[in-house]
Amino acid sequence: MSILEVHGVSRRFGGLQALSDVSFSVPQGQIVGLIGPNGAGKTTFFSTLVGLIRPDKGSIRLDGESVVGLKPHKVAHRGMTKTFQNVALFGESSVLDNVLTAGLLRHDVDAAREEALKCLDRVGLRAIAHQQAGLLSFPERARVELARALCTGPKVLLLDEVMAALNPVEMQEVMDLIRSLRDDGITLLVVEHHMRAIMTICDRVLVLNFGKLLADGTPQQVANDPQVVEAYLGKSMEKRA
């Protein structure tokens, strides 16, 4: 059975159709890439999945149950959460407290602290657990945010550009981490601009353009899809003529 089923999801902001009739389903344990040009609706789509934005139409089912209309904290409780593109940490708090706060969803304070330390171990930040989160570098903050999302104990984790601004070594580490989360049974949706990373780790890639699902297939299939190439690079000269 699919862990996440999205059917006919649409959302309009004034004159802009941000999402139109998006449908797909994801079996448990896949890494699904979500790509598309800037403004294609990727972040809007993630926000819609977790309940920050309500769709005008369509259904979203997590593990068989509808989550449309639920507040984000309820969706998190059901097992789906996301990271923020521009990183939204609790900047005045320590790294540990940021992650611990997420652990409170399913644990008391002491157990949440244990859980948070485990999550920090996983992203390789345990050494800086007591530093103030707001003072870290951007790549470090992105990882704290990943640890925080992980600490909610998700079934489905939506990662919005967690590899932005990483050097190749760090990027490899995050890719290994994403794979190991998948091996733990977590289903991941990954928005990323870095194509090589997407092509390497994803079992499947969705392409969004102007709020519509343009393609859905293996990384190879998608990379060879002429519509996708057109969306990214524009029409070829022969076609224009």
Binding site: V50, G51, L52, K71, P72, H73, A76, H77, T81, K82, F84, A88, L89, F90, G91, E92, S93, D97, T101, A102, L104, L105, R148, A149, C151, T152
Partner: peptide
């Protein structure tokens, strides 16, 4: 404290 610093992020992580 989470709500004080970022209400949307607080909601998304289950608060």
């Amino acid at each position: 404290r989470a709500i004080k610093e970022n209400p949307s992020a607080a909601e998304v992580i289950g608060i």
